[in-house]
Deep mutational scan, measured.
Amino acid sequence: KKKIKIYIENENGEKKTIEIEVEGDIDEIAKELAKKYNVKIVKIEP
């Protein structure tokens, strides 16, 4: 498992940072999160 930080922006332009532990393809997981929460991924840090 890797701990990563995902910087997101919602439709109101509010920026947030999510810190999660992931296993597998980080890009795939980030895309799923973006779709699920309707946010834009700004940056992903390993």
Rank of each mutant, 00 (worst) to 15 (best):
K3T: 12
E23T: 12
K31M: 09
G24K: 03
K1P: 10
I26G: 04
A30P: 00
I4N: 01
K15D: 05
E9F: 03
N12V: 09
A34T: 06
E45H: 04
A30E: 02
N38Y: 06
I29G: 01
E21H: 08
D27W: 14
N12H: 13
A30Y: 06
K15M: 15
N38V: 02
G24S: 04
I18F: 13
L33I: 11
E23K: 06
G13L: 04
I8D: 00
I6F: 13
I29Q: 04
D27Y: 13
E11V: 12
I4G: 02
E9V: 09
I18D: 00
P46V: 15
I29H: 04
I29F: 15
E11G: 09
V42Y: 01
G24Q: 02
A34I: 07
E9Q: 07
E14W: 12
K35S: 05
E23R: 08
I18N: 00
A34Y: 04
D25A: 04
E45A: 05
Y37M: 15
E9I: 13
K1M: 12
G24E: 02
E9C: 05
I41G: 01
G13M: 04
A34H: 05
T17I: 14
N10Y: 15
V22N: 05
K5F: 07
E23S: 10
E14I: 09
K2W: 14
I18Y: 14
D27P: 04
E11F: 11
G13H: 05
I6A: 02
K2A: 11
K3F: 12
V42E: 04
I20A: 05
K35G: 01
V42G: 01
Y37Q: 14
E21T: 07
T17L: 06
E23P: 02
I6Y: 03
E21I: 13
K31D: 07
G24I: 02
E23C: 14
K1H: 10
E45D: 04
I4E: 00
K1R: 12
I41F: 03
E14L: 11
V39A: 15
D25R: 04
I4F: 15
E28Y: 07
I26R: 02
Y37W: 12
I41C: 06
Y37S: 14
K16F: 15
K40W: 02
K40Q: 11
K3I: 10
Y7F: 09
G24Y: 03
K31I: 08
Y37N: 14
E21Q: 06
V39P: 06
K36W: 05
V39D: 07
I8T: 10
K36L: 09
I29N: 02
E32R: 13
K2Y: 14
L33P: 00
N12I: 12
A30D: 01
E23M: 12
G24W: 03
N10F: 15
I20K: 01
L33T: 01
E21K: 03
E14A: 10
I8G: 02
N12W: 14
V39C: 12
I26S: 03
E9M: 08
G13D: 03
I44T: 02
E28T: 11
K16E: 09
T17Q: 05
K1N: 07
V22A: 12
I6Q: 00
V42F: 01
E14M: 11
G13A: 03
I26A: 06
V39H: 05
E32L: 10
